[in-house]
Nucleic acid binder design. Sequence first.
DNA 1: TTGACGCATCGAACTTCGTCGATGTGAGGA
DNA 2: TCCTCACATCGACGAAGTTCGATGCGTCAA
Lengths: 124, 124
Amino acid sequence: MATTLPLTDVSPARPDEAGACCSPLVREAADPETAVELARVFKALGDPTRVRLLSVIAAHEGGEACVCDLTEPVGLSQPTVSHHLRLLVDAGLLAREQRGKWAYYSVVPGALDRLGALLTGAAG
Amino acid sequence: MATTLPLTDVSPARPDEAGACCSPLVREAADPETAVELARVFKALGDPTRVRLLSVIAAHEGGEACVCDLTEPVGLSQPTVSHHLRLLVDAGLLAREQRGKWAYYSVVPGALDRLGALLTGAAG
DNA sequence: TTGACGCATCGAACTTCGTCGATGTGAGGA
DNA sequence: TCCTCACATCGACGAAGTTCGATGCGTCAA
């Protein structure tokens, strides 16, 4: 699914001009299309398990972790963890890399920053 | 409901010490309790209707709007809009003020900034 | 007091989500 | 080749969320 995310194309090109005031979300009413894409990313973070997964992966050594590293911290079954990881990847927050038998997940660089900038209006 | 939100007490007290690196979410694995409270706020933004409501209210003149101003932009019934507004208030993102027959909703000052800072690691 | 108005709450129908066990797939070792 | 391992997918179930019409509750004007 993971279409073009608002994380990459919503932030203003000239922050000193439009982004000076406040968040793009606040400056003017977001059109329905933008709202849908934005909500998709927020929804991905709208589950405690996924927030923990993201956090555990980011804090893990090397900034990456395989599924087997994650089932125990969140206390859920492997299929369930795999399901949540997929949602985070679809939302553009996590990246997946297959190495041998293992699948390594890592936080997409700048993804959280861009999402945060969307809220605060800060320039990327 | 709206208990003590992570928006107010999670950000580090000394940003130049701990917040310099990256987001609190990324620096170390969030404990389950924090994850639950964080997810609650994100879940409130995890619906296109609520993203639009927040945006329309913020962009409305005076930074506030009553329910009757909001049903038409989102194209939903009044009870449904009222329901979504309640969720946003419970999440600490909107404030409600009754004036006469009307209930005026406005974005809580700094709420989006604090949420964004949680993602980017920027100091408030 | 009565009525109109704005909004919240309720109850019900429908959809989506979170979770699991079972099973499929693909890589690596014996 | 056969087995094991790590992970994804499937099918199913209960829980939670979204939406509506109907109704209740204040406020204000007549």
